[in-house]
Design a binder for these strands. Structure first.
Length: 268
DNA sequence: GTTGCGTCCTGGACGC
DNA sequence: TGCGTCCAGGACGCAA
């Protein structure tokens, strides 16, 4: 399930692969989530950026600068070696030099859009997305204010993308474990918000350093698995002893999301 | 405006 | 071995 570290890993591989190439052909699945892919035809790639979990491919186009926006959802994969006619391929783009870029997505939770550059207001979450967690715009005070305004569970707020961008289920569990905060807490003080701020940055930075977390579907552009899954302290370890205190980690569903936490280190 | 639940979607795991 | 059921979760729609 691609979160910020996985998407950033893909972005870093994709940028040199797509640089200055012109899209001359494309096709998409009938699912409306993907039908926008051909709107990139005619564009020359100017760069590959990322915002939260969204990949932003800049395009120099005759009708003005555009952006190809790709969200990988749960099982989305991008790759030059993805056969456009292969199973679960929802879209592909062909380049003037003859190569292709395929988008495969088994569960179809991803989505593709093409918009005028920088115009994200029609894209729901991306139009309201919060600060990049590894940038200076994400501060302990800003996180505290974002949490303080809300009465939802702290983990639900993190997953909402409006207080901080790019955090998904895995890294939310990991960051809350590191900060010692119960995932269902509805109030977080300034001190604990600062600890959570540091934890979010740390787990995401480590995730990027390790090339992302592969639990099942995630693969880089070159088809490799990430290495971060061996470093997880909390997510997916329910029933096992906490690495900090030895207490058995618990699992429950909060707001529809499977959640693992340590009842001793993360008291309610 | 906020919160929380249901839905989409499919392969794998599991039980019988 | 084969079948049915459950589970995973990001984003979005909708009701309260």
């Amino acid at each position: 399930m691609p979160e910020l570290p996985e998407v950033e890993t893909i972005r870093r591989q994709l940028a040199p692969l797509l640089a200055e190439r012109t899209i001359v052909d494309a096709a998409a699945d009938a699912n409306p989530k993907f039908t926008a892919a051909p709107a990139a035809i005619g564009g020359t790639v100017t760069g590959v950026d990322r915002r939260g979990k969204y990949l932003l491919v800049g395009l120099d186009h005759a009708d003005g600068p555009r952006e190809l926006v790709v969200h990988l959802g749960m099982t989305g994969q991008l790759g030059a070696d993805i056969d456009p006619g292969g199973p679960h391929v929802r879209a592909w783009w062909g380049f003037a030099d003859g190569g292709t870029l395929g988008y495969r997505d088994v569960r179809q939770f991803g989505r593709i859009a093409v918009v005028p550059a920088g115009r994200y207001e029609t894209l729901g979450t991306l139009g309201r997305i919060g600060p990049e967690p590894l940038s200076d715009s994400f501060t302990p005070a800003g996180l505290w204010e974002g949490l303080h305004r809300r009465r939802a569970r702290v983990k639900t707020v993190l997953l909402g993308q409006q207080v901080v961008a790019g955090v998904g289920n895995i890294y939310a569990d990991e960051a809350l474990w590191r900060a010692g905060i119960h995932p269902a807490a509805r109030r977080v003080g300034r001190e604990r918000a600062a600890a959570l701020h540091a934890a979010i940055r740390a787990v995401l930075a480590e995730g990027i350093e390790n090339g992302g977390t592969t639990l099942r579907d995630y693969r880089t552009v070159t088809g490799e698995a990430g290495r971060n899954q061996t470093r997880l302290d909390c997510y997916g370890r329910a029933g096992e002893p906490c690495r900090r205190c030895g207490t058995t980690l618990r699992h429950a569903v909060f707001d529809g999301r499977g959640t693992t936490w340590c009842p001793a280190c993360q008291p309610r």
